[in-house]
């Protein structure tokens, strides 16, 4: 299933992280964080409610499984962790622009939006405090927009908006995993760069579905297909197949 490949690709976001809180918001990101923590037990995770746990908690009905709680981590304490920088979140913005600025707040005119969404949530604080990666289940020009996102909820590599005394290197956006490819910000001047293509996807497809110019190197790889062990772990963390709706 494509979704399993997306989960393993997303898990790669935390591959080189040390002892940081891996937060995956949504089914695929959370399963990816779970897989990443399985491979790298230095990572930390929560039960998505109020405790840090010693091993990832399977999603969906618990069927008798009791989370292995080790540290109270209510929302007030989450911000202490956020501001310490020891966190790497994988989130799913509605819009992303060429600077990596992201939007989950509102589409259209800010005073009277065409579509009101969640609000900025923790995006501003996350983006200035710690590493972030993005998951985009539907790679299109509606998500990867020309110009700037309608409401800049998280800071990106935009020199025009760089706060005084800061450098673009203070910002840490790692991977973008979509249903077509994996990208990062490794092009010239933090330009978004194509890293790998999922099976049967072409460079042209990615370029066509992205609303701005990306950096396409000569050595674009193939996204790794999940191993049997990875598939078994995904199955363990999602015994109820809640990940299936991501297959579109």
């Amino acid at each position: 299933m494509l979704v399993d490949l997306l989960i393993t690709a997303c898990a790669g976001a935390w591959e080189n992280d040390g002892e940081v809180l891996a937060s995956g918001i949504g089914v695929v990101p959370r399963l990816a964080a779970s897989l990443a923590m399985h491979k790298n037990p230095d990572l930390m995770m929560t039960d998505s409610e109020a405790y840090m746990v010693s091993e990832p908690v399977p999603i969906g009905p618990r069927n008798g499984y009791e989370p292995k709680r080790e540290t109270w981590m209510g929302f007030s304490r989450i911000f202490d962790n956020v501001w310490s920088g020891k966190r790497h979140a994988l989130v799913g913005p509605t819009q992303i622009d060429r600077f990596g600025q992201a939007n989950i707040s509102a589409i259209g005119d800010y005073d009277q939006p065409k579509i009101q969404m969640l609000g900025v949530r923790g995006f501003p604080g996350n983006s200035i405090s710690h590493a972030n990666s993005f998951f985009v289940p539907n790679h299109s020009t509606r998500v990867f927009v020309d110009g700037e996102v309608d409401m800049v909820a998280s800071i990106g590599y935009n020199p025009q908006r760089l706060p005084k005394g800061h450098s673009l290197d203070d910002i840490d956006i790692r991977l973008i995993v979509t249903n077509l490819c994996v990208m990062d910000f490794g092009g010239p001047d933090h330009q978004i760069r194509l890293v790998s293509l999922h099976p049967d996807v072409t460079n042209e497809q990615v370029i066509e579905n992205t609303g701005f110019e990306i950096f396409v190197p000569d050595d674009v790889k193939k996204t790794a297909v999940p191993t049997d062990e990875e598939l078994a772990m995904i199955e363990r963390f999602d015994p109820n197949m809640l990940r299936a709706p991501a297959e579109r």
């Binding site: 501001w83 707040s105 800010y110 900025v120 995006f123 501003p124 604080g125 983006s127 200035i128 405090s129 409401m151 800049v152 909820a153 998280s154 800071i155 990106g156 935009n158 908006r161 760089l162 706060p163 005084k164 800061h166």
Partner: peptide, 20 residues
Amino acid sequence: TEVGLGTDVVACNESIKLIE
């Protein structure tokens, strides 16, 4: 706080000021 820097929560809200 650093939170909000570079985003529209500062740019769109005149009541939130920046300081040194």
